[in-house]
Design a protein around this nucleic acid. Structure first.
Lengths: 333, 333
DNA sequence: TTGTACGCGTTATCAG
DNA sequence: CTGATAACGCGTACAA
C-alpha cells in the first residue's frame, strides 16, 4: 500500500522468483500452487505491470495513434467510435493526435511516431501533398489510411466511393423530376473536396443534366458556418430546384438559409446531405443524406491495422465501401 | 537508415559519449562544437529518443488520460477540444479511454492507471457510486474531475453551475410572459440529471411558477432519439407554453416533434436547450440555449492538471464556472 | 517447473 | 565540459 509495487516485491511476497511472477502474468507455464500464491501476492499488493518497462523490453507500446485533421467534425467522430469499438476488445489503447491541421504539424507528428509511442497508426489526412506523401512512405509504423490513398503509397487503405454517393443523389433527384441541381462543396484543395467535385460532374453528365459555372459553390470549410457565410443569399439557391451538399453540416446551413427565406424545403427545393449523421434525423424537415458509413470505415480500419500488426508480410489491402442513400423528407415533393 | 537509431548509435556517429548526446537532447551544458556534431548526427540518422526507455527512466509517461462516459456527445467533444488545445502546447499526449460507461469498465480502467501509462487523468463520470468514489480516493495519479465532485474526495474539480443556468432559463421565460414551464430531463440516475432536476425545482419556486407532476419528464438518455422516443406525443407538450431541455440534443428532438405537429416554436411554445452547441445555430428556428462553457471547462481542467503535475503539494482546487444564456429565436414570441 | 542474470534505451551520478 | 556506468522494471535465455 505504500510504494508502487514492482514485480520484485510481488516475487518476494509470494516467495518465488521474478521469472515466475512474469510467467504467471503472461499466462505461461506455472504450477497451480505457484500460480495461486503469485496471484494472491499480486492482489494483496495491488500490483500492475509497469507499461513503460514492458514496452521497452517487448519493443511495443500497446498503443495505436489516431490522427485526424478535425476532431470536431461529426463524421470523424463516427470514425472514432468505430475504431474504439474494435480496439476495446484488444489490448491496445488509443492515443489521440490532437488536431493535426497544417502540413507542418502533420510532419512533426509523423516523425514523432519514430519515438515508438505507438505500434500502429490510423490516419485520415484531409490534404495530401508531396511532403506528406514522402513522410508516409518512410513511415516505419504499420499504418492504415482512411480516405484517398496517394499514388505510390503501399499501405492498407479503406475508403468510400463518394462519387458513387453523389451519383445516387443525382439519380434520386432525376427520378423525382428535379432538373436544376446545384452542388455546395467544401474546399477544392482537400481530398474530399476533389473527389466530390469530380463525382458531381460525372454524375450530372451521366444523367444528362445541365451544369454551368454557377452550379457549384466551393466553401472555405465543411461546416455550417462556412455554408451560411459562403452561400451569400437565398437568391442563389432559388435558381435551382435541388441542392446537393458535401456533408450534413453544410446541408444544415443551406436548409437554414432556405427556411429563413420562407422556402419550403422538399417541395420547393430539395436538399441532400452526405455522411448521414445523427443530425439528419433531428432537422426539420428530416434530411435525405448519403450514408458514407463512417463508423464502419473506422471499424474496418482498426481491424486491418490489428491484422497487419499481427503479420507485417500481408500485402497492402484496399477496401472500398459502397455508400447508400437514406431518403427522408428534405428531398420529397 | 537501416535500423532504428538509438542514442548509442548517435554517440558513435558524433564521436562522443551517450551522456553528451543525452545532454544535448535535454538542453543542458555542452560545448557548442560538441552540440553541433551531435545535432548533425541526430539529423543524419533521423534519431528520435525512445519514449518507453525515457518513461522507464524518468518515471513519467508524458501522457494524460481522458476518460468520458460517452464520446459521442457534442458537449464532451467541446470538452475534448478545450483540453487538447491546452495540451498541444505541452509535452503531453492525450490518450483516450474509450467509452467507459458501466461501473465495471470504469473500475478496470482506473485500476489500469496503476500501470503508469499516464501521468495525469481527466475524468468526467456521468454516474458516481460508492465503488467509483472509493477507487477515485485511492488513485495515485494526479486527477481532475469535471462535473459533480463526490463528497469526501479531495481532488481538483471544475464544474459549472447548471442550476444557475436553469434559473436563467426560467427567468428569461418569466420575463417574456411564459407561465407554464415544462422540463425535459435526462435520467435522474446521472449526476447532470440530478443537478438539473434540483435546479429546475428551485428556479420554479424562486419565480413562483406552478409545477406539478407532469412538468418534468425523465428520458432514458441525453439524446435526440431518447427525446423523440420519450416525449410520446405533442399533446403532452401542448399543455405548456415553454419547454426547458436538459441539453441541445434533447431540445432538437423536442423542436422536431413540435414542428412535425405544426406548432410554431417560439410564439406558440418556447424551447430552451443547454450546452449551447453548434447545433443551436443550425436549427430553425435557432435555439436559445444555456451556455455551459464546455470548451472552457476543458481548458481549465487541463491547466489545473498541468499545474498539479508540476506541484503535487497544491491544495485541492475547485473552479465553478457561471453559465450564460444565449437568446435566439426559439424563445421569442 | 523454477531461479539467475542479462539487456531493452535512457537519464543521472560521479569521476576525470 | 565530458565519459563511463549504474539504475529504471520487465521478459526471457539458460542453467538447475
Amino acid at each position: 500500500m505504500g510504494e508502487k509495487p514492482t514485480i520484485g516485491l510481488v516475487a518476494k511476497r509470494a516467495g518465488v522468483s521474478v521469472a515466475s511472477v512474469s510467467r504467471v502474468i503472461n499466462g505461461t507455464l506455472a504450477r497451480p500452487a505457484t500460480e495461486k500464491r503469485v496471484r494472491a501476492a499480486i492482489e494483496e499488493l495491488g500490483y500492475h505491470p509497469n507499461s513503460a518497462a514492458r514496452a521497452l523490453k517487448v519493443q511495443a507500446s500497446e498503443q495505436i495513434c489516431l490522427s485526424f485533421a478535425d476532431v470536431g467534425n461529426p463524421a470523424y467522430l463516427a470514425l472514432t467510435r468505430g475504431i474504439s469499438r474494435v480496439l476495446r476488445d484488444s489490448k491496445y489503447r488509443l492515443v489521440l493526435s490532437t488536431s493535426v491541421s497544417n502540413e507542418k504539424e502533420i510532419a512533426q507528428h509523423l516523425q514523432g511516431l519514430g519515438s515508438g509511442y505507438a505500434d500502429g497508426l490510423i490516419i485520415s489526412p484531409i490534404v495530401t501533398n508531396e511532403k506528406i506523401t514522402g513522410l508516409l512512405k518512410e513511415l516505419r509504423v504499420p499504418t492504415v489510411l482512411i480516405g484517398t490513398l496517394p499514388q505510390g503509397i503501399k499501405i492498407d487503405n479503406v475508403s468510400i466511393d463518394s462519387s458513387k454517393g453523389i451519383e445516387m443523389a443525382v439519380a434520386h433527384l432525376k427520378e423525382t423530376g428535379r432538373k436544376k441541381v446545384a452542388f455546395v462543396n467544401g474546399p477544392l484543395a482537400t481530398n474530399p473536396g476533389k473527389r466530390r467535385y469530380k463525382g458531381f460532374i460525372a454524375a450530372m453528365e451521366k444523367y444528362k443534366l445541365k451544369i454551368n459555372d454557377d452550379s457549384i459553390i466551393f466553401l472555405s470549410d465543411f461546416t455550417s458556418e462556412a455554408a451560411i457565410e459562403g452561400v451569400k443569399s437565398a437568391n442563389f439557391l432559388k435558381k435551382f430546384d435541388s441542392i446537393i451538399c458535401a456533408n450534413d453540416l453544410i446541408a444544415a446551413g443551406v436548409i437554414k438559409i432556405l427556411l429563413d427565406n420562407k422556402i419550403i424545403v422538399g417541395p420547393d427545393i430539395a436538399v441532400i446531405g452526405m455522411d448521414n449523421t445523427e443530425l439528419g434525423k433531428i432537422l426539420s424537415p428530416s434530411l435525405t443524406s448519403i450514408d458514407l458509413r463512417a463508423e464502419q470505415r473506422g471499424e474496418i480500419a482498426a481491424q486491418l491495422l490489428l491484422e497487419r500488426m499481427n503479420d507485417a508480410t500481408l500485402p497492402p489491402r484496399k477496401v472500398e465501401l459502397k455508400p447508400s442513400i437514406v431518403i427522408r423528407d428534405s428531398s420529397q415533393l
